[in-house]
Structure formats: structure tokens, C-alpha cells
């Protein structure tokens, strides 16, 4: 098991955003965590990345507890995140944004090879490499955020609603890329409100509702599940 979250609870002051959540991610999988707005998805990812501290529970990555580690240590250990809303660095060029993704890496040759890999995967970023990242369209910014996260050479990639606010053509492309990232050997924990897309590419999935996991299963099982159909797929 690459990542194991057990009984995780996270609060914002008096608000209990995550109330004892357990799930796991095996190496090589795409695991989707779906749930409505406010279910606690982003909070879980922030806590895994070390931006928030849990009230209780454990996050075990490669056999070690990381819930109290600093974010830079977590990145160095191989967990990268594509945050909700992309959060690219405006004022920095596309290339500089990618460079920032490799901030902790010392293997120059590896970094060079990864620029090539990212540019191959996202040709539009190569075209716009010297442009201010703020001038990219929403879809392009999403690709930049993904490219930046990949530049850290993660073992586990956390993605927070990568399809949010994008045109359908971009959405399909983004999901194709996520599958390609998996094929290349990176494990993915994918958070989405677009449940049908997320579950159709996922090996396994979990359904989160107001801070609790209410369902789990393979992607196919969850897609076929009545409750999921009703609540998230408009069926």
C-alpha cells in the first residue's frame, strides 16, 4: 500500500470538515474520491500535503506516518498536488512555473528529461513557454498546474478537481492525460465532482459525504451503484 489514511479528522476551528475518514491507495492505481461541494475533499488533500494538521487519525505513506511532517518533506518524499483552482504562479512564465515544480530536485539531467516529457505531453505549454502564466486560458492553466506537479517527479499525484470550470473538450483531454500519467507509473488520487468521468477511469473509488466515506468499491461498481447514480450522476 502506497498511502493509507486511517480515521482522519480535520477541523477548521469549530467546523468538523472531515470526521474520521479511512481509505487507501495502492501503487499504480487511480483512486477517485468523489463527493458534493463541501464534502471535505479539498481538506483531505490539504492535510495529506501537510498544509493542514489533522485533529486525529493517521496518514501513512510508504509505511511511515506523515501527518505531522512539513509540506516540503512530503513533496521531497514523492507526493505532489495539483490544487483546486490550479494556483499557477502569475507573473512567472510558463517555463518558470515548471522550474518551480522541480524546486527540490537536484538531478539536473532528470529535470531536463522531465521538461521534455512535460512538453511532449502538453505541447501547448511548449508553444507558450515564455509567456506569463496568467495569460493562459483556464484549460491551459490546468495543464500547467499538472505539468508543474509532474516536474517534482512524484510517486503519488494528488489532483483536486482538475476538470472544474473547463470546456468539455479540455475535460476529455485532461482525463486522457491522467490515464497516461498512470500508465507511466505514477499513482493518482483523483478528486472530482465530475463523478462519471472520474469513476470511469478509476481502479477504485470512494464516495465522501459531509466528512464521512459512505461508499467504496471499484470504479465500475460505483458507476453502477444506485445511490451514486441518483446523487452524483443525475440518473
Amino acid at each position: 500500500m502506497l498511502l493509507q489514511v486511517s480515521d482522519l479528522a480535520v477541523n477548521y476551528g469549530v467546523i468538523h470538515a472531515v470526521k474520521g475518514v479511512s481509505f487507501d491507495v495502492n501503487e499504480g492505481e487511480i483512486v477517485s474520491l468523489i463527493g458534493a461541494n463541501g464534502a471535505g475533499k479539498t481538506t483531505i488533500l490539504k492535510t495529506i500535503s501537510g498544509l493542514m494538521r489533522p485533529a486525529s487519525g493517521k496518514i501513512i505513506y510508504e509505511g511511515k506516518e506523515i501527518q505531522n511532517k512539513k509540506s516540503q518533506k512530503i513533496v521531497a518524499d514523492g507526493i505532489s498536488q495539483v490544487p483546486e483552482g490550479r494556483h499557477i504562479f502569475p507573473g512567472l512564465s510558463v517555463l518558470e512555473n515548471l522550474q518551480m515544480g522541480a524546486f527540490l530536485r537536484k538531478d539536473r539531467d532528470g529535470v531536463k528529461a522531465d521538461y521534455a516529457m512535460v512538453f511532449e505531453r502538453f505541447p501547448v505549454l511548449k508553444e507558450r513557454r515564455d509567456q506569463d502564466a496568467a495569460t493562459l486560458s483556464g484549460g491551459e492553466q490546468q495543464m500547467l498546474a499538472m505539468g508543474r506537479a509532474l516536474m517534482a517527479k512524484p510517486k503519488l499525484l494528488l489532483m483536486d478537481e482538475p476538470s472544474m470550470g473547463l470546456a468539455p473538450i479540455f475535460i476529455n483531454e485532461i482525463f486522457d492525460i491522467i490515464q497516461a500519467i498512470k500508465k507511466q507509473g505514477t499513482t493518482v488520487l483523483l478528486i472530482e465532482q465530475n463523478a462519471s468521468k472520474a469513476l470511469s477511469i478509476a481502479d477504485r473509488g470512494y464516495v465522501l459525504s459531509t466528512g464521512n466515506i459512505i461508499l467504496s468499491g471499484t470504479g465500475k461498481e460505483l458507476l453502477a451503484n444506485d445511490e451514486v447514480q441518483k446523487a452524483y450522476l443525475g440518473g
Partner: peptide, 16 residues
Amino acid sequence: RAVSVDADAAQLIGIN
């Protein structure tokens, strides 16, 4: 520059 435009995103790429 990264921290001044977006401190959370800077942390997510490992900036101290």
C-alpha cells in the same frame, strides 16, 4: 516571487 503570489501553492511544490 512564488511565495508572494501564492504561499499555499509554493508550499505544495516544496518551498520552505
